[in-house]
Simulated assay, not measured.
Amino acid sequence: MSSASSRSSGDPVSAALDVAATRIVEAVTRLGVTNPVVLIDGRSGAGKTSLARELVARWPLRGRVQLVALDNLYPGWDGLADGAETARALVLVPHGRGVLGLWQRWDWDASEYAETHAVDPALPLIVEGVGLLTESTERLGDVRVWLESPLVSRKRRALLRDGETYRPHWDQWAEQEERHLSRDDPRRHATHVFEVP
């Protein structure tokens, strides 16, 4: 998604994500560091993945940016909290300490861990997924984003994206999201909050 096409498309979701990407790019630029960390949280279907991809495409700093999606870390449909903790312990903490981070991708089809990926602490990092913004990750993210979106819109987008694979697990996942919201109050830990229709 380019900023030009999203501005001209008339799609309110694309327009909202374009505004969010623009403001995040400005915030990253203002930081004045070479390896900033951007965390993007929000409930299922809020637009986290689309926003993260747009940020990668528009990254304002020289060189490449790393992207880690929690969808690759959650160990199954009951794994929201475990995936978020894996991101904290194996991706964010090492990056913050300046050491190489290593994480394994969860293979949803085989229900087991697959290949290992590395996170270079010298490079900037975007991590996206529900469960990310907590008290323990607040100090590990330079720009922390919460996406707010209505249930009807989120569910429609999520089921269009993942179809019948996700439908039987929607309520199960939503309960875990509710626990995250109640326990962690992610919006409180955000530096930026964006409304996505």
Rank of each mutant, 00 (worst) to 15 (best):
Q66N: 05
R105I: 01
R30W: 05
G47A: 05
G10T: 04
F194T: 01
G10Y: 06
K155V: 11
N72F: 02
V145E: 00
V38Y: 13
H180N: 03
L67V: 02
G47L: 07
W103S: 03
E112D: 09
L17R: 13
R58W: 04
G163C: 11
S9T: 08
M1F: 07
Y166H: 09
T86D: 04
V28H: 03
V37S: 05
V93S: 06
E148Q: 09
W108T: 09
R64A: 08
H192W: 00
V145W: 00
Q66I: 07
D71S: 06
A84L: 02
P94E: 03
V152Y: 07
R23V: 02
L17G: 04
S182Q: 14
V33C: 14
S136A: 12
A27I: 06
P75R: 05
E148G: 07
P197N: 01
R64H: 07
T191D: 04
S14L: 13
E54G: 13
R144I: 05
T134L: 00
I40P: 11
R139G: 05
D162R: 13
E135V: 08
I40G: 06
S111Q: 15
D142A: 12
L140N: 00
Q104K: 15
S50K: 13
P12C: 07
D41N: 00
V99T: 15
R64Y: 01
A52K: 04
S8M: 08
R64T: 08
Q172V: 09
G163K: 14
E135Y: 04
A89Q: 12
A46M: 07
W146K: 00
D171E: 15
Q172C: 12
A114V: 09
E195N: 08
P75S: 05
A81T: 07
G141T: 01
D107H: 12
T134F: 01
R30T: 10
E54N: 11
G96T: 04
S14T: 01
A110R: 15
G63D: 11
V33H: 07
A190T: 02
V91D: 03
S2I: 07
A158Q: 12
A15D: 07
S182N: 14
W59S: 10
D185S: 05
R167I: 03
R139L: 08
A89E: 12
W103Q: 06
R156V: 07
Q66L: 06
E178A: 14
G79T: 03
P121L: 13
D18S: 10
A84S: 08
T116R: 15
N35D: 12
R88T: 02
I24A: 04
S2K: 14
V56F: 06
S14Y: 10
R139I: 04
P36M: 02
L67H: 12
D162H: 10
E164I: 02
R187V: 02
A158N: 11
T34P: 10
E175K: 15
D109E: 15
L61S: 08
L159N: 10
A57Q: 14
L39H: 05
A118D: 14
E177K: 01
A46V: 06
